[in-house]
Write a protein that binds this DNA or RNA. Structure first.
Length: 425
DNA sequence: TCTGGGGTCCTAGGACCC
DNA sequence: TCTGGGGTCCTAGGACCC
């Protein structure tokens, strides 16, 4: 098993299209340009941490010449697809684990050739996509993840670490902190600390049965995985998703009902698009909105309500109706000091494939009209850009103060003809 | 003094991940 | 002024059943 991932992936995507970014500190921000979510090694060296709010590090970034970007998910998604296409040249069995990480089955590769293959893979990905990567090899997923961490943090290894090599396994497990193990978070770390567990080897040598009490079956599984007993299979076919959510912080604050309903309707529109892309439907939506915990002293309010649909659907109009209803039935007129809402969202669980969901006996939605209508809307938006066609119910207010902020976003170089990079020769 | 012995299903909340 | 978004899995405990 091998785990390959892109180094500072979002930052590396930006670097591919602007060579001037090489060797200078780069960070990419979350939605609304809120927090740092990707940093190059140069940025990390300046003390910028994962999740640091941008307004707190802005001065540092200016002073140190850090190049700052809004997230460009269209670009990162496309680059992710390109790297995976390269991985597939090296292994027929690839599990895409996240936007920048994939597991590869290397069990057919002779042990002596694995490191060489991994080096070839890195070089090819770099040459064909421009993305730098690291590769970790282990007999289980947990060990491959650990090997990847070692490959990333020990420069001498040249970006590849193979823990199927018994010598490397014995060498590294007692030198790496248990905090680096995949699946060990803050809470588990505190428990392990109390037990005197410091290194990965300490955890591996624990008796798995009693561990189950404190760390649940998850902790027990980790111990087996560290010993080389695979508990987590390669998932070649992505499991059907169970839930779906569209939630956003507003770029400012919202106080009035009409604007809140407009925002929620826009989220419902996005939700419908996501569900239709996967042929899924839901028979209920949970709508929530709340004030910000950072607005100290201001009146606080947090609302969450679930609205039923007559039957399973992915119809944008039905979702908007339900979402608006969720706001309507929970809205409270403000008093002297209005609530200043900072975030709203729409969430669904228990998604089912629409092709075999039961129809409602009473109040069934008109699927025969809805299907073609939604297909036409999706086609228009695919061709002319999101928002080219929207239901009037979604709101036509031009004053979109709630819209997410992306003030430093680069062009969608690889997916939009009008935004292709220009080269001068 | 002393109140059975299983099951299933659902939900909320915790923990963790990228 | 300004603090992201979207997932999964697990457990405990309540409700309910016979």
């Amino acid at each position: 098993m091998a785990l390959i991932d892109g180094n500072s992936f979002y930052c590396s995507c930006e670097r591919v299209f602007d060579p001037r970014l090489a060797r200078v500190p780069v960070i990419v921000l979350s939605n609304n340009d809120g927090c740092a979510i990707a940093r190059t090694s140069e940025a990390k060296a300046l003390g910028i941490r994962m999740g640091d709010p941008y307004f707190k590090i802005r001065d540092l970034c200016r002073a140190q010449g850090v190049r700052v970007f809004s997230s460009n998910y269209t670009l990162y998604g496309d680059m992710s697809g390109r790297t995976n296409a390269v991985y597939r040249q090296f292994s027929p069995q690839v599990e895409i684990y996240s936007i920048d990480e994939s597991f590869l089955n290397l069990t057919d590769v002779a042990p002596a050739l694995r490191v060489e293959l991994a080096r070839d893979l890195r070089a090819t990905v770099r040459a064909w996509t421009g993305i730098p990567t690291c590769v970790g090899i282990g007999s289980t997923k947990t060990l491959a993840k650990l090997a990847n961490h070692i490959a990333k943090t020990v420069p001498d290894l040249g970006g590849v670490c193979d823990l199927t090599d018994p010598e490397a396994y014995a060498h590294w497990l007692c030198r790496i902190s248990v905090a680096e193990v995949w699946g060990i978070g803050r809470a588990s770390l505190a428990k392990l600390d109390a037990m005197g567990v410091e290194s990965v080897a300490d955890l591996r040598d624990l008796d798995p049965r009693p561990v189950r009490k404190g760390l649940t079956v998850v902790g027990e599984r980790i111990i087996h995985e560290l010993r080389g007993l695979a508990c987590l299979p390669l998932e070649l076919v992505p499991a059907r998703r169970k839930g779906c959510a569209v939630t956003r912080s507003f770029s400012g604050r919202i106080e009035d009902r009409a604007t809140l309903e407009e925002a929620v309707a826009a989220h419902a529109t996005r939700l419908g698009e996501k569900l239709r892309r996967e042929g899924l439907g839901t028979d209920h939506v949970t709508v929530f909105y709340h004030t910000s915990e950072h607005d100290r002293g201001a009146p606080m309010r947090s609302v969450s309500t679930t609205v039923s649909l007559p039957e399973h659907s992915s119809d944008t109009l039905a979702l908007i109706k339900a979402a608006r209803h969720g706001v309507a039935k929970t809205w409270r007129e403000p008093g002297e000091r209005p609530w200043r809402y900072s975030k709203a969202g729409i969430v669904t669980n228990d998604l089912v494939p629409l092709s075999h969901s039961p129809r409602a006996l009473i109040g069934a939605l008109d699927r025969e009209r809805s299907g073609p209508l939604m297909a036409a809307m999706d086609a228009c938006n695919a061709r002319w850009g999101r928002g080219a066609v929207v239901p009037a119910r979604a709101g036509l207010v031009s004053r979109r103060e709630w819209n997410t902020k992306f003030e430093m976003r680069t062009p969608r170089y690889t997916t939009q003809v009008s935004e292709l990079p220009v080269a001068w020769a």
